[in-house]
Amino acid sequence: MAMNAVARDTVFALRRQIAKIEGTLPERLQAPVSGTPGAIPGKVQSGFPSGIAEKQHVDAVRSDITIVRRGLAVAGQEAFLNTGIERLDTALGGGLPKAALSEIHGLETRDAGAVAGFALSLASLIRKEKPGLPLLWIGTAEIFHEAGFPYARGLHALFGIAPEQLLFSEAPKLLDALWIAEEAARMTAFAAVILEIRGSPQRLDLTATRRLHARAQNAGRPVLLLRQAGEADPTAAPVRLIVSAAPAAERETVAGPLAGSIGRPAFTVAIGKSRTALPGQFTLEWNPDEHAFTERSAEKERAENPVAVVPAPARGADPAPASGSVLAFPAVASFATGYQPSRQQRPAHRGPRRAG
């Protein structure tokens, strides 16, 4: 029994140490209750005794204190990039972390344009706080040959990013792209660093993403990892957003929606991973005039797409006709009907033979 108690205390001590390192150790925001054993008046006590005393201590002071966790609360709103969508920011625990590695995932190759557009939308929000700093986009030759480069005129018109403020680095190999991203992530001369990867390469493992995440934390700059047609492999990014293209709504005019027109860019964003572990799926529209996101409601989604993809028959339901009688046909057609077998179908013994 004594050994079990010692082992249990050791486990509790290790858990407290890990929580302290990760910044998730519960802390008291108010002065401790008078009469609490070991309490120092006027001081803030952190942590709890181990074992059964922990539960008793929590029950005794639960009504008098407020418990927080540093990893989610103490950092403050200034540590997050607000997307402007309250539901999305709440599900992410405040928004996208500014000084961290964030993963933007496209499940298929055809989603590369939507992933790039969503990343540029986030970059536009980032540059509002750091308007004078450029952006660095890193990728391999395979990436840029497959998905292309962002259009310079579209950058300024849709996202307010001048073409000279977006720098590209085309690396011959993935190893070179990772090295460039690690060196760029440690610099404060960029507003953000974008690394685009295709597939699920072995070199993009936990070790590589941990280095990128650590460099981003030290520099206080965001690093956006764009994944094209890759699996949801484990990475060190605290946030993973799965992005695909959403149907664009009709263009709004003074007289109402313009029939047959194409409105603002739209994205379907699903939360694949976050610190809060709250799932969610959102349809976002990017406003190129205000450089901000707006959320499309479910009612508007149904109103803009009232019909099915395949229209119903004009005369109503058209069931399949009833089946008739089944007839048996001979397995081999008669040569009298003009049927001529191909050379491959003719018996081998009827074909010409080579002498000798």
Results as ranks from 00 to 15, higher is better:
residue 278 L to T: 10
residue 351 G to D: 01
residue 162 A to D: 09
residue 129 E to T: 15
residue 189 A to D: 08
residue 240 R to T: 06
residue 171 A to I: 04
residue 83 T to P: 02
residue 4 N to V: 09
residue 350 R to K: 10
residue 103 E to M: 12
residue 26 P to R: 08
residue 295 E to D: 01
residue 184 A to M: 03
residue 11 V to G: 14
residue 78 E to C: 09
residue 170 E to I: 10
residue 6 V to Y: 08
residue 107 L to A: 15
residue 8 R to Q: 04
residue 231 E to P: 06
residue 154 G to I: 05
residue 245 A to G: 06
residue 217 Q to A: 12
residue 153 R to C: 12
residue 227 R to H: 00
residue 123 A to L: 09
residue 72 L to R: 12
residue 285 E to P: 11
residue 200 S to K: 08
residue 32 P to H: 05
residue 57 H to L: 07
residue 206 L to H: 10
residue 76 G to F: 03
residue 197 I to Q: 01
residue 165 Q to W: 11
residue 328 A to E: 07
residue 247 P to D: 00
residue 313 P to Y: 10
residue 218 N to L: 15
residue 178 L to Q: 03
residue 207 T to E: 07
residue 280 G to K: 02
residue 166 L to T: 00
residue 80 F to I: 01
residue 55 K to T: 12
residue 299 E to R: 13
residue 331 A to W: 13
residue 157 A to Q: 06
residue 349 H to V: 05
residue 199 G to H: 05
residue 302 R to T: 08
residue 88 L to F: 13
residue 148 G to Y: 15
residue 108 E to I: 11
residue 23 G to M: 00
residue 295 E to V: 08
residue 306 P to G: 04
residue 28 R to F: 01
residue 99 A to F: 04
residue 318 D to H: 14
residue 141 A to Q: 14
residue 76 G to A: 04
residue 225 L to T: 05
residue 17 Q to F: 15
residue 310 V to W: 11
residue 158 L to H: 11
residue 330 P to R: 14
residue 168 F to I: 12
residue 24 T to Y: 03
residue 101 L to S: 09
residue 304 E to G: 15
residue 257 P to H: 12
residue 139 G to A: 07
residue 250 E to I: 10
residue 180 I to F: 06
residue 288 P to V: 01
residue 83 T to H: 00
residue 53 A to E: 02
residue 171 A to D: 07
residue 317 A to H: 12
residue 214 A to E: 04
residue 324 G to I: 11
residue 64 D to L: 08
residue 56 Q to Y: 12
residue 199 G to Y: 07
residue 142 E to C: 09
residue 107 L to T: 13
residue 242 I to P: 02
residue 302 R to A: 13
residue 5 A to T: 07
residue 150 P to D: 03
residue 263 G to Y: 06
residue 295 E to A: 01
residue 41 P to W: 05
residue 321 P to Y: 09
residue 272 G to R: 04
residue 1 M to F: 11
residue 134 P to M: 09
residue 132 G to I: 02
residue 103 E to K: 14
residue 25 L to T: 05
residue 138 I to K: 10
residue 247 P to C: 05
residue 181 A to M: 01
residue 149 F to I: 05
residue 248 A to P: 03
residue 222 P to T: 03
residue 268 T to V: 08
residue 128 K to G: 03
residue 129 E to Y: 13
residue 216 A to N: 05
residue 265 P to L: 04
residue 146 E to Q: 15
residue 353 R to D: 08
residue 56 Q to L: 10
residue 324 G to S: 13
residue 219 A to C: 00
residue 319 P to F: 03
residue 278 L to I: 09
residue 41 P to I: 00
